[in-house]
Nucleic acid binder design. Sequence first.
DNA 1: GTCTATAAATTGATAGAC
DNA 2: GTCTATCAATTTATAGAC
Lengths: 212, 212
Amino acid sequence: MTTLVSSDSTHARQRNEQAILAAAEQVFACHGYRGASVQGIAEAAGLPKSNVLYYVGSKRQLYVTLLERMMARWNAMLDDISIEDDPAEVLEAFIRSKMELTRRHPQGSRLFAAEILQGAPFLQEYLRGELREWVQARARVFEQWADKGLMDPVDPVWLIFLIWSSTQHYADFEAQVLGITDREALSETDYRRITDFLCGVILKGCGVSAGP
Amino acid sequence: MTTLVSSDSTHARQRNEQAILAAAEQVFACHGYRGASVQGIAEAAGLPKSNVLYYVGSKRQLYVTLLERMMARWNAMLDDISIEDDPAEVLEAFIRSKMELTRRHPQGSRLFAAEILQGAPFLQEYLRGELREWVQARARVFEQWADKGLMDPVDPVWLIFLIWSSTQHYADFEAQVLGITDREALSETDYRRITDFLCGVILKGCGVSAGP
DNA sequence: GTCTATAAATTGATAGAC
DNA sequence: GTCTATCAATTTATAGAC
């Protein structure tokens, strides 16, 4: 009995929470933390405002939950590398997985951008800790590749930022991309072509040739 | 007499308006249109809220004024090119002037990013009109260069987006860049090195060799 | 769990004293 | 020109009926 009831309410809870998270990601991405209103999120989720606050506690908690979900997606993308790996394979996989994150989670990507844009008040710790060490570990590998003549001696941190920025652009500046290219949306073919373009230019640009 | 008085008030007006514009650019860039409050802008400008509204009319007018100022800076950067020009020179000048815009006007660049992030409600017309034609005109020149074998046959629009995104990144994601590189600010030397890096990788990456 | 009502603070904007 | 006082609307959040 309790099982049946709690099963029903659990389903209702899960369904509502998912609707709220999706709606909130869109609204926070569009207007930033301060610009987003719980009212607006509730309307986008098709629920009364009170229900939204009942489920998520507060606007602040909701925002943190969304940031954490986006960080989890981001971390799932970051696999380890070593000097023995092939530079071309690693850089290409790097670009492709980052672009896939943009394509699959454009709202989350924009939410992340809005957070950084306001000075990253909620993500300072993550940026200066976890993420910084990840970047520096990769940078060291890139430098060793350059020492072995496998790629040009470019600054590895600027290279990582180049990959991040050029892929992130298609989420954050989607409105500009669509306006200039006169599209309603980017198709999977568009994404494939853009990714191929970025792989081609960036790999060639830092002197990495195709794998063995 | 009238001249003297109006001269004084004109100076006061100009001084206050400049303070308001600078403060508003910072606050709008940080929190977006909806997230910014006239109160917050007034505090940043060191003026009472009423005075801000007295000078600029309304929050909306202030925002539009700032967008127009940023568009003017942007347009001042966009010089014409033709098939006779040297691809290496043009692409390098393109990257350098865009990076200079980022360096000189980081707040304005972030304001622009926040506007696009929310779907460009105020800039739709500009994006689908003026800017789109400018991009397509350049794209045609790039294609003719590729036909003449002066550069690789890459999609010119994706190439323009690559240049825009990789330079814009150092304004929009400044908080991330500073956090990861453990800096307080980017120095002029940093900007020079990043610009050199981007010129090197992008020009080499699309098969453009150094000028004659 | 769901909803209405409401509290307490803040929003953009204006009126009017000085 | 500058400021205080104030408007109506909206903000986050909670209390309590059902």
